[in-house]
Design a protein around this nucleic acid. Structure first.
Length: 434
RNA sequence: GUCCGGAUAGUGUAGAGGCCUAUCAUGAAGCCCUGUCGAGGCUUCGACCCGGGUUCGACUCCCGGUCCGGGCGCCA
């Protein structure tokens, strides 16, 4: 039972005379007395329904005049070519069915005439999303996901799903959300890292997963959330250079696909999208440190992580996407492989947008003894990682991979101000609903 | 966690101790209007975050709380 025959966007003036049924929301009613305009909105846009008082059924006109905004409607009528109407056509209705009445007043203005704070918008996200520029963000996000899946398909990747309820911390460091799992304690997964690596031992060769990750950090910024979508990749018989090349091509393709396929949404957002050129610049940690420390009061010492100020300084110096490579081994996780001839430096990398980190990845440790030792050195108990280490003892190929934050890709691509603008229902320190 | 700023009709805002019976816009209800496209005109409705204090008098100043925004921290 599909009620509508067309979306508003499907109708063109040349369809003059065609009977159509539109379904959507009462966006606005403009009553001029002798003529009354009802603007119907659906996912694809707006359609003007015109009622001329002298020509239309009196009850129909009264019904439209007293419609509450955002009520759900079914409009049957005829397309009429009309130069005076928006987009050159209007609908002359024969029947208007109110499927559900919207209460009044609305918790926020869906037309965008009056603004709303982010907090108000998130509390009423279902109405916020009725605004074209807000919807545009998520249509683009959908296209980004489609683009990545296409890219992975073209490159021989297998899509996998790994558990989100896990027994142990993946990597230590970050705080985890504990949950009750029958009589035991379990955690929400902070990353699919361990599982995608085990799949390399299994021989799946190239896998990707797009799924949620959870971090119980009490961070409170515009670029962090406690639940995020991670695009994760792992590739066997490959090194960090190989997976960096995959990453930059995947990101560039996402930009290209959005630029080509989301024209309407980009216009709604007022964005002229520039596709980043590949290959991205490679900047070593040591070079980045030099840039960051230039003119800085308190210099960052080699071996320390870059703080926000440093990240921004390097970002504005480079001015485009870049890879930061050759990180100190000590500040990368245990599964990151050090260079054999310079063990203090690792084969880990971060993909950076000038404003923030987007992804991190590495050539992984594949030797079980070295891995166990590095787990121990990070202050973790190798016993808790037995299920993981086991996969390394019976034929683990060399492998590399990365994890990319979907929200941050969309945030930086569209120049949004807050990661919450790039997530339908964000989860942060305080927000658990809706 | 910490620093800075904020909280006024459904929404977005003005307000600097008495001018506040609180501004404007939007909205809602009603009326007028035959081409609107952020329609226009008229009438009506609707609000000072919570607790304490200062003062003759507090939306306004002070203290505490809650919540919101931003910076930093935390985040492999």
């Amino acid at each position: 039972m599909v009620l509508r025959t067309h979306y508003s966007g499907d109708i063109i003036p040349e369809m003059d005379g065609t009977e159509v049924t539109l379904a959507g929301w009462a966006h606005e009613v403009r009553d001029l007395g002798g003529i009354c305009f009802l603007v119907l909105r659906d996912r694809e846009g707006l359609a003007q329904v015109t009622l001329v008082a002298k020509k239309v059924d009196r009850d129909l006109l009264e019904k439209v005049r007293h419609l509450s905004r955002e009520s759900v409607l079914l409009v049957r009528g005829r397309v009429k070519q009309e130069a005076k109407a928006p987009r050159g056509y209007e609908i002359i209705p024969s029947q208007i069915e109110v499927l559900n009445v919207a209460a009044s007043p609305l918790p926020m203005d869906p037309t965008g005439k009056v603004g709303a704070d982010l907090d108000t918008r998130l509390d009423s996200r279902f109405i916020d999303l009725r605004r074209a520029p807000v919807l545009a963000v998520f249509r683009i996000e959908g296209e980004v996901l489609r683009s990545f899946r296409e890219f992975f398909g073209e490159n021989g990747f297998l899509e996998v799903c790994t558990p989100k309820v896990v027994a142990t911390a993946t990597e230590g460091g970050t705080a985890l959300f504990p949950i009750t799992y029958f009589e035991r304690e379990a955690f929400l997964n902070q990353s699919p890292q361990l599982y995608k690596q085990m799949l390399m031992s299994a021989g799946l060769d190239r896998v990707f997963e797009i799924g949620p990750i959870f971090r119980a950090e009490e961070h409170d910024t515009r670029r962090h959330l406690n639940e995020a979508i991670s695009i994760d990749v792992e590739v066997s018989f490959a090194d960090e250079a190989d997976v960096m090349a995959l990453l930059e091509e995947a990101v560039a393709k996402a930009y290209r696909d959005v630029a080509e396929r989301c024209e309407k949404d980009l216009v709604a957002l007022g964005i002229d999208l520039t596709v980043p050129k590949t290959p991205f610049k490679r900047v070593t940690y040591t070079e980045a440190l030099k840039i960051a420390n230039d003119g800085r009061a308190v210099e960052i010492e080699w071996g320390d992580d870059l703080d926000t100020e440093a990240e921004k300084a390097v970002g504005s110096a480079i001015g485009e996407h870049y890879f930061m490579t050759e990180w100190p081994t000590a500040i990368k996780p245990y599964y990151t492989l050090p260079f054999e001839d310079r063990p203090e430096i690792s084969r880990g990398f971060d993909l950076m947008h000038p404003s923030m980190e987007l992804a991190s990845g590495a050539q992984r440790v594949h030797d079980p003894d070295l891995l166990a030792e590095k787990i121990r050195r990070q202050g973790l108990d190798p016993d808790g990682f037995e299920f993981y280490l086991k996969a390394f003892r019976f034929g683990m190929p060399p492998h590399a991979g990365w994890g990319l934050g979907l929200g941050r890709v969309v945030l930086t691509m569209l120049g949004l101000e807050n990661i919450r603008d790039a997530v339908l229902f964000p989860r942060d320190r305080r927000r658990l609903v809706p």
